[in-house]
């Protein structure tokens, strides 16, 4: 042991001023790997991205289909794309509660004490979550296809919509990451997350056409980022077109990341 440890003490070494971009990426991937291992050991973390899309797709289609579109079949292009956005949002909400719980554990003290990029412990799990969004999006689309959904956009359109859903989930997760860094308890993150998630999902054209809502609500629906994502997904999957909606959705998602990622890192490092 002496031999091992004697080489451990070197005070006079050059010190790095900050982690390089390459180091930051590698540290983020290492943290993603940790999150991935934990995910595999806690399969209940997959409930919200498996059971929920399966259940909601079938339930909403059969409940609202007749009322809104006349029959279930013609409602599918609306509901599948709506559920895709909704699932991305719910799946990303879990990021906040999990981060809060994780940060209360001793191991986060070590992450903070290590000379690593401050964003790595936040971005790593977000990267691992791509798997969750991927599962959710795939399941929703498969259920839709089984129920008779025939997307007009073809394979390419569906793949593009699938990818957009995953990107949207990842982007929106930064809102909840930020909540995780500012709120004191996981319960608080959960509660506030719900309060954000419900209006964002339901005050959007996810399940019903915007035109059926009162005027004042329609104004909110128009600026809701989830609306942007839903419109873009519909254009891609149902029409196979890359419209301005798609551009706006991408810009909107990027804007969310550009605002909330730095905010999260700032509030995480300030909490030291």
């Amino acid at each position: 042991m002496a031999a091992l440890i004697s080489t451990y003490a070197v005070a006079d070494r050059p010190l790095r001023a900050h982690p390089s971009v390459g180091e930051t990426i590698s540290q983020t991937l290492t943290m993603a790997r940790r999150a991935y291992i934990k995910m595999m050991r806690n399969p209940e973390q997959f409930f919200d991205v498996t059971i929920q899309p399966l259940l909601f797709t079938a339930m909403f289609a059969y409940i609202f289909g007749g009322a809104i579109s006349g029959d279930v079949q013609s409602y599918l292009p609306t509901i599948i794309t709506g559920i895709l956005a909704q699932t991305a949002l719910t799946a990303s909400m879990a990021r906040g509660t999990q981060l809060r719980e994780d940060m209360d554990k001793g191991v986060f003290d070590r992450f903070k004490a290590l000379p690593i990029a401050r964003i790595a412990p936040l971005a790593g799990p977000a990267v691992a979550d791509l798997l969750r969004y991927g599962i959710a999006a795939t399941l929703t689309i498969v259920v839709g296809l089984l129920m008779g959904y025939r997307p007009g956009g073809g394979v390419g359109g569906v793949l593009a919509g699938w990818a957009l859903t995953i990107f949207a989930g990842w982007s929106l997760s930064w809102i909840f990451t930020w909540l995780g860094t500012v709120m004191k308890t996981a319960g608080g993150v959960q509660g506030l997350g719900m309060m954000i998630m419900f209006p964002l999902t339901f005050l959007s054209p996810a399940f019903v056409p915007k035109e059926t809502m009162p005027d004042w609500l329609q104004h909110f629906v128009d600026v809701n980022p989830v609306t942007l994502v839903i419109n873009a997904t519909r254009d891609l999957m149902n029409a196979g077109e890359v419209t301005m909606s798609v551009v706006w959705a991408l810009v909107g998602c990027a804007a969310v990341v550009a605002i909330f990622a730095p905010l999260s890192v700032w509030s995480y490092s300030k909490k030291l």
Partner: peptide, 26 residues
């Protein structure tokens, strides 16, 4: 210079700062 200080110090906290869900090697 917190980043530099972190390169010089090894911290063993009062409460175990290792990940419960991982193995020792992990």
């Amino acid at each position: 210079y917190p980043h530099q200080v972190r390169q010089l110090v090894g911290v063993t906290g009062q409460y175990a700062s290792v990940d419960e869900n991982l193995t020792a090697t992990e």
